Each structure stands twice: as structure tokens, then as C-alpha cells.
Simulated assay, not measured.
Amino acid sequence: MNNKHPITPYGWRIKQRLTELRLDQKDFCRINDIPPYRLSNLIHGTRRAERYRRQIEKLLDLPPS
């Protein structure tokens, strides 16, 4: 898959944490009622999505960016 937007360092932290939890993005979004496109926005840096950013940071125990 060739994405126009590369994964940001913040996006890699999200992906790393999901891997540690043995969750894929789809399941994480389904379990936590987060639209998959919003998680993608955060991973690729295409939108700030502040509400979901705070929620994801809390759920994944990530330091605030």
C-alpha cells in the first residue's frame, strides 16, 4: 500500500503500543468506539483530532504529545 502521508513519529508510538497490547488498529477502534479514520489521521498526522488524541493517549498510556 502506498500512502501519500508517511507515518509520523507519534504514529509509530501508537503502532508500537498496539503491538505490545497485541491489538490491531481495527480491533482497537472497534473495542473503544473510535472511528478508524480518526486513528489513521493521528498516525499519519493529517488531522490533530484532539478529542480522539486525548482518548487514545489515555487508553494506550502514551505521554501527551
Score class of each variant (00 low, 15 high):
residue 60 L to E: 07
residue 5 H to P: 03
residue 46 T to N: 00
residue 37 Y to E: 14
residue 54 R to F: 12
residue 26 K to A: 09
residue 51 R to Y: 12
residue 17 R to T: 05
residue 49 A to H: 06
residue 30 R to C: 08
residue 45 G to M: 03
residue 45 G to H: 04
residue 37 Y to W: 14
residue 30 R to Y: 08
residue 22 R to Q: 01
residue 48 R to S: 15
residue 13 R to V: 07
residue 44 H to E: 05
residue 6 P to M: 14
residue 33 D to S: 09
residue 49 A to Y: 04
residue 35 P to V: 09
residue 53 R to C: 08
residue 19 T to V: 09
residue 56 I to Q: 05
residue 1 M to C: 15
residue 60 L to G: 00
residue 57 E to K: 03
residue 14 I to Y: 00
residue 32 N to E: 01
residue 4 K to L: 12
residue 10 Y to D: 09
residue 28 F to H: 04
residue 61 D to V: 13
residue 26 K to E: 09
residue 5 H to Y: 14
residue 54 R to E: 10
residue 11 G to L: 07
residue 47 R to E: 08
residue 2 N to E: 12
residue 36 P to R: 06
residue 46 T to Y: 00
residue 21 L to H: 05
residue 48 R to P: 05
residue 8 T to S: 10
residue 25 Q to K: 07
residue 50 E to H: 11
residue 14 I to G: 03
residue 27 D to A: 10
residue 34 I to D: 03
residue 39 L to F: 04
residue 20 E to R: 00
residue 10 Y to S: 03
residue 27 D to Y: 03
residue 19 T to I: 06
residue 46 T to M: 00
residue 10 Y to G: 07
residue 55 Q to Y: 02
residue 16 Q to E: 11
residue 24 D to P: 06
residue 57 E to D: 04
residue 26 K to P: 04
residue 25 Q to T: 08
residue 39 L to V: 06
residue 13 R to C: 08
residue 65 S to V: 13
residue 15 K to M: 08
residue 52 Y to T: 11
residue 53 R to V: 05
residue 1 M to A: 15
residue 29 C to P: 08
residue 53 R to W: 04
residue 49 A to T: 08
residue 11 G to R: 03
residue 27 D to L: 05
residue 45 G to I: 04
residue 26 K to Y: 11
residue 48 R to V: 13
residue 62 L to A: 10
residue 50 E to K: 14
residue 59 L to C: 05
residue 43 I to L: 07
residue 59 L to S: 01
residue 4 K to G: 11
residue 11 G to M: 05
residue 6 P to V: 11
residue 27 D to S: 06
residue 39 L to K: 02
residue 50 E to V: 15
residue 59 L to F: 00
residue 24 D to C: 13
residue 32 N to M: 04
residue 24 D to E: 10
residue 41 N to L: 06
residue 18 L to R: 06
residue 52 Y to P: 03
residue 20 E to C: 00
residue 8 T to W: 07
residue 6 P to I: 14
residue 31 I to L: 09
residue 64 P to H: 10
residue 20 E to I: 01
residue 58 K to E: 09
residue 25 Q to P: 06
residue 53 R to A: 07
residue 7 I to M: 05
residue 21 L to F: 00
residue 58 K to P: 06
residue 12 W to S: 08
residue 65 S to A: 13
residue 29 C to Y: 04
residue 51 R to D: 13
residue 3 N to G: 12
residue 61 D to N: 12
residue 35 P to H: 12
residue 15 K to C: 03
residue 2 N to L: 15
residue 28 F to G: 02
residue 54 R to H: 10
residue 63 P to E: 15
residue 64 P to Y: 11
residue 57 E to N: 06
residue 40 S to E: 14
residue 2 N to M: 11
residue 14 I to D: 06
residue 24 D to N: 15
residue 52 Y to H: 15
residue 3 N to K: 15
residue 28 F to W: 02
residue 5 H to W: 12
residue 38 R to Q: 14
residue 53 R to D: 03
residue 7 I to E: 04
residue 58 K to F: 05
residue 60 L to F: 02
residue 56 I to E: 08
residue 31 I to H: 02
residue 12 W to V: 09
residue 65 S to R: 10
residue 13 R to L: 11
residue 51 R to E: 15
residue 28 F to Q: 00
residue 50 E to F: 10
residue 55 Q to S: 05
residue 49 A to M: 10
residue 4 K to F: 10
residue 25 Q to Y: 00
residue 20 E to T: 00
residue 63 P to F: 13
residue 35 P to T: 09
residue 41 N to D: 10
residue 16 Q to T: 11
residue 39 L to D: 02
residue 47 R to D: 05
residue 2 N to K: 13
